[in-house]
Nucleic acid binder design. Sequence first.
DNA 1: GTCGGCCTCATCCGTTCGGATGACCGCGTC
DNA 2: GACGCGGTCATCCGAACGGATGAGGCCGAC
Lengths: 211, 211
Amino acid sequence: MISVLVVDDHPIFRSGIRAVIGTQPDLQIAADVGSAEDAIAYATDHCVDVVLMDLRMAGMGGAAGTAVINALTNPPKVIVFTTFSSDGDITAALDAGARGYLLKDAHPDDICDAIRRVAAGGAVLAPVVAERIVDRNRTTTSDQLSPRELHVLELLAEGLANRAIAQRLHLSETTVKTHLAHIYKKLDVDNRTAAVVTASESGIIRTVDRL
Amino acid sequence: MISVLVVDDHPIFRSGIRAVIGTQPDLQIAADVGSAEDAIAYATDHCVDVVLMDLRMAGMGGAAGTAVINALTNPPKVIVFTTFSSDGDITAALDAGARGYLLKDAHPDDICDAIRRVAAGGAVLAPVVAERIVDRNRTTTSDQLSPRELHVLELLAEGLANRAIAQRLHLSETTVKTHLAHIYKKLDVDNRTAAVVTASESGIIRTVDRL
DNA sequence: GTCGGCCTCATCCGTTCGGATGACCGCGTC
DNA sequence: GACGCGGTCATCCGAACGGATGAGGCCGAC
């Protein structure tokens, strides 16, 4: 019997998972909680096999929660189960040690299968997620933004002017312009606004979390 | 007995709603479907009291679906039930004739209450949504963007330069600049990138739908 | 009919941006 | 040690942008 901890801030969604997993003879819900903090508390005190973890939640969020849970002794396997599939979310989840990344439009059967596979030591990625990772690796080899460029890009996405970015980063305006020129080349755009838009679309930066 | 049609492209979510409503003696699920098109087909052939409608779905989407359902003879009441609360989503839903706007992090009890109230002829807005509407009306009287300005803003959000916007809109570059100046004033920003960011944050424009 | 809002356009001016070029440093690799 | 890469900075220049001002036409409201 595989025991599952469900972590999601939407009670309806937790009910849905309960309903789906309740029909499976080899799966059982150990508990369902509404935040990463509660999940950590539960996983620390109890023994569960798999954690189904939402990413975007109030508080510490699912990625950080996954990292903490993975730091436990004899940690459960974490499957990230979320609506979004931006590059930022995916890397955050995988970096935190998630063994699976499923999207919420998945079919119930796929979810149960994923739980079984991950419990057995495997890993599961939603097809779209797998594609994104491959895509990124394809374009990334030469096109990946350096940490500094990423930082500049983030400030750019706040609508700051070059001078303001320079001040925030304690740089000369020239340096900022140099970074921007590289960013434009790598993103294949020719102005700052387009850079922000494409970076946001491709999930390189996260603009807003409006829920 | 109030019969409910559930429309959502997430099967898990439909299961959740089933589980929640199944416990209520005075509510019953007539059917659950995964698209607005299916919802229209069902509502045309059957008699239901309330439709719980997701907004962002593949195909025609929940707002258009709501509009079509409201055009039926003796239409059911539609409650929009979604994760997002951008201005664009809210106005689209209410314009389409939705009698309620709930967010998916709502408590099961609130959802059941909302269904009962809407079935009885009332209207229900999630607190956050109500706030947004009030906020918008407060700032809107003088700050609302004109249709033309909105159009310019949308092209701006594609990263286009003034000249390109002018060509797309068959305008002179000067006119575009005039519109931009007004947009900056109304949004309280001082450059195009910041305009795009704040417009996106406040839901004035919809940048990406990444699911 | 006057007023105000929206849309259109022009000119002028200072600032900002984007591109090109060249340079120096530190670091890891071959 | 040579090389590449990332990060830093300078200078120069043309293009784009943002602000201010003025102006005409259209249309709905008072």
